[in-house]
């Protein structure tokens, strides 16, 4: 990149690096705080100066976090709900995006531009602007407290779809024609040749969707009123409302809620960063 030798003396460089490394450290501090505090009784969390290495490992926080205030262990159910909702939405949305992205990039049909404009227009509608009518419809259809109700509004993932289309625009037509000559049906071509060879675009779209769902608070807050149907973010809100003084246990909940997504991040970091890099083309 810009490894410019004229960037000044070594001393300047050192100071420069020092400042930035401090900034990056500051970004990490709250995460270390969450980890360490989750192993401390509440009184230790607020005794300053803060001990960055806990005196002893205080497991009780994790027991409280998992068992819940009422020993109902509903947290485990809520974690399972989060996994089901996030993975379910991701799988369906990737299929829908793949289908539509393929249709929009490789087939000519009347109304194709209209469909594409609709997808682009959808990006302008914030979920927050349509959630109230959706909530009312969901209540009318009896979709409260169901997985279907939690997942349905997010299966059309316009960013994922748009990305699939852009990716498939550059997919070689020769491969598709070769498949046709070899007697594959259109669905077979899509599944065997296109879908299975689009891993980067699919992974980026999938991660984007999964992360969004893992983080989703607003819609589950509306739609999942029953304890057993809550997802992790709504569980956290309820847990903190009930138990205002047990800060150690709160941090334990926070750590447990973050483990799955952090594991995913460490194994698939390329696609996480890819979702962010998607914007940087100068044009989308």
């Amino acid at each position: 990149m810009l490894r410019n030798k004229t960037l000044g003396s070594r001393a300047f460089n050192l100071g420069f690096n020092g400042i930035f490394l401090m900034v990056i450290l500051m970004v990490m501090v709250p995460i270390f705080f969450m980890l360490t505090a989750s192993f401390m009784p509440s009184s230790d969390i607020f005794s300053m100066p803060y001990r960055w290495i806990p005196k002893s490992v205080y497991w009780k926080n994790y027991i409280t976090a998992i068992a819940g205030n009422d020993r109902s262990f509903v947290f485990i159910r809520n974690v399972i709900n989060s996994v089901i909702v996030a993975s379910g939405t991701t799988i369906f949305s990737v299929l829908v995006s793949g289908f539509a992205g393929y249709g929009l990039s490789k087939y000519k049909f009347r109304g194709r531009n209209l469909v594409f404009l609709m997808i682009m227009g959808r990006m302008m509608i914030p979920f927050e602007a349509i959630m109230i009518p959706m909530y009312i419809s969901a209540v009318k259809l009896g979709l409260q407290n169901t997985y279907t109700g939690l997942m349905l509004p997010f299966i059309l993932n316009t960013f994922g779809l748009f990305q699939m289309r852009q990716y498939l625009m550059t997919f070689p037509d020769d491969i598709l024609d070769a498949g046709r000559i070899d007697g594959l049906g259109e669905l077979g071509i899509f599944w065997r040749l296109v879908f299975k060879n689009s891993t980067p675009a699919i992974a980026t779209a999938a991660i984007l969707c999964f992360r969004g769902q893992w983080d989703n608070l607003l819609w589950p807050l509306l739609i999942a009123q029953k304890e057993a149907m809550k997802t992790i973010p709504t569980y956290i809100v309820k847990f903190t409302e009930e138990k205002s003084s047990d800060e150690g246990a709160m941090m334990a909940v926070a750590v447990l809620a973050s483990i799955p997504i952090i594991v995913l991040f460490l194994t698939l970091s390329k696609y996480f960063l890819g979702g962010s890099a998607m914007y940087s083309a100068g044009k989308e």
Binding site: V27, P30, I31, M250, M251, I261, S269
Partner: peptide
């Protein structure tokens, strides 16, 4: 490292900073 906070849930982020 810089990206790590972005993957945490907003609720988790709010909780950490609340303390």
């Amino acid at each position: 490292m810089l990206y790590t906070p972005a993957i945490l849930s907003s609720v988790v982020a709010a909780l950490i900073w609340m303390l």
